[in-house]
Amino acid sequence: MDILLQNFDLVIFLLLAILGYTAGSLAEKRHYRSIIKREKELLKMAVITAEGSFPPSKVKESALVTGSVVVSIDYFKRLLAILRNIFGGRVKSYESLVDRARREAILRMKESAKKQGANMIINMRLETATIGRNANKKKTVGSVEAIAYGTAIIMN
């Protein structure tokens, strides 16, 4: 018991890392399941980065659609990234973070396009921002924001 009290900050650190690992990987798995499920539902909605040309008679309406999301990294993965920063190389723990953020942003954009009755989205662009400055800086919120935007085409 004494050792726990004497190394209090170490214990807190370990607890946070374990909590971050379990809760973080659970949340990530659940998020991926939902992403894949919704991607299948919205598979019919065409999204391209090219402009494409449409004869005026075919297009009823066109509108800008956007989708955005802010995803945060868990304590454990942040620890991994800090360590990785020392040795260099691929920061694997952040790959899933940015991947989830972008796919979620695209999905939300598609969902908003579907609500408007669009058939396809052209000229889609993606942007990322970091709200908490850096995702692994101490005392700031480590997160990634992804924005997807494009032009939704509602056909006749």
């Binding site: 391209i48 980065t49 090219a50 402009e51 990234a81 990785r84 920063n85 920061v91 952040y94 973070l97 940015v98 972008r102 662009r125 993606l126 942007e127 990322t128 921002a129 970091t130 850096n134 995702a135 692994n136 800086k137 990634v144």
Partner: peptide
């Protein structure tokens, strides 16, 4: 076609490069 690059600074000292 229509490839775009984007970067972000998810981590200090690390570069995120994204192509779509």
């Amino acid at each position: 076609v229509n490839i775009r690059f984007a970067t972000s600074s998810v981590a200090q000292g690390a570069a995120e490069l994204f192509a779509y």
